[in-house]
């Protein structure tokens, strides 16, 4: 087990009114630690010195809850593709490295403290229509509607979104198109969701715009950084169905 000495440049910001700055810290780690465990070590030393630990969001630490949210050396969730920060391990760094850690940057994700941002805009996008309107008890038998295996898999691939916001963080425009389109695709691809698809896509795009996210310029950075490797095919699908809904249906949201 080899020991590593690292210099961390961490974004410190007391709250949303504070302008924030980088602080440098030395931390001793080893290559078997996860990135967050390395931060745990930093926080432990800060607490021992009676200083404020670095606030960062994390929960499941197995890559599925979507809580962790930090930009490591300019890349959301760090250098390893298809991986959340909590699953990133220190063996991807070298002793002597300087690592810069910043929060997600986007107007629609205001910083709460240090590396913690407010992602409630994502919840509001889902509330705008990211569901199928079925009350408990209304369902027919699960096998009543056969769904082509490939179609179910495509829907699943879109549905694996963990809502972490790395897409927005990676996008130079802070666009939430990958997030929104993943949900639109997941539900729209399935016959159960097809029913209200037309209204859903308009409502969700409208909410997305109102939250202040930027516009998609198809850089593809989102799909590169998405820890679940969700494809921008979903964005094209949303564009298509959005236009289809605006021009082809009688719905206006």
């Amino acid at each position: 087990m080899s020991d590593m000495n690292l210099t961390l440049k961490v974004w410190r910001q007391k709250n949303n009114n504070d302008s924030g700055r980088f602080e440098s810290y030395q931390v001793a780690a080893n290559e078997h630690m996860s990135f967050l465990e390395m931060l745990d070590v930093l926080n432990q030393t800060l607490i021992e010195k009676k200083e404020e630990p670095v606030a960062f969001e994390h929960d499941c630490r197995e890559g599925i809850c979507g809580a962790c949210s930090m930009v490591i050396n300019g890349r959301p969730h760090g250098p390893q593709g298809g991986t959340t920060t909590c699953q990133l391990h220190m063996r991807h760094f070298k002793s002597g490295d300087t690592i810069t850690i910043e929060p997600w940057r986007a107007k629609a994700f205001p910083v709460i403290k240090d590396l913690v941002v407010d992602r409630s805009s994502f919840d509001r996008i889902i509330q705008a229509g990211g569901y199928i309107s079925v009350n408990t008890g209304q369902a027919q038998d699960g096998n009543a509607i056969p769904i082509e295996k490939d179609l179910a898999l495509q829907a699943f691939d879109a549905a694996t979104c963990i809502g972490c916001g790395a897409c927005v963080a990676a996008c130079p425009n802070a666009s939430a198109m990958l997030f929104t389109s993943a949900k639109v695709s997941h539900l729209g691809l399935l016959p159960q969701g097809e029913v209200e698809h037309s209204k859903r896509v308009q409502s969700m795009v409208k909410q997305m715009d109102e939250e202040g996210f930027g516009m998609c310029s198809n850089t593809g950075a989102c799909e590169v950084e998405c820890p679940k490797e969700i494809s921008i095919t979903n964005i094209a699908r949303m564009n298509r169905t959005y236009m289809g809904s605006v021009f082809g249906s009688d719905k206006t949201v």
Binding site: G142, N143, K149, A155, A159, H186
Partner: peptide
């Protein structure tokens, strides 16, 4: 049994066979 029905109706993408059934 009702849970599966409910979840399918909500759009939970359960694994399926080639025939399209769960």
């Amino acid at each position: 049994r009702n849970i599966i029905d409910q979840c399918v109706a909500q759009g939970v993408p359960f694994a399926r066979e080639y025939g399209g059934l769960l």
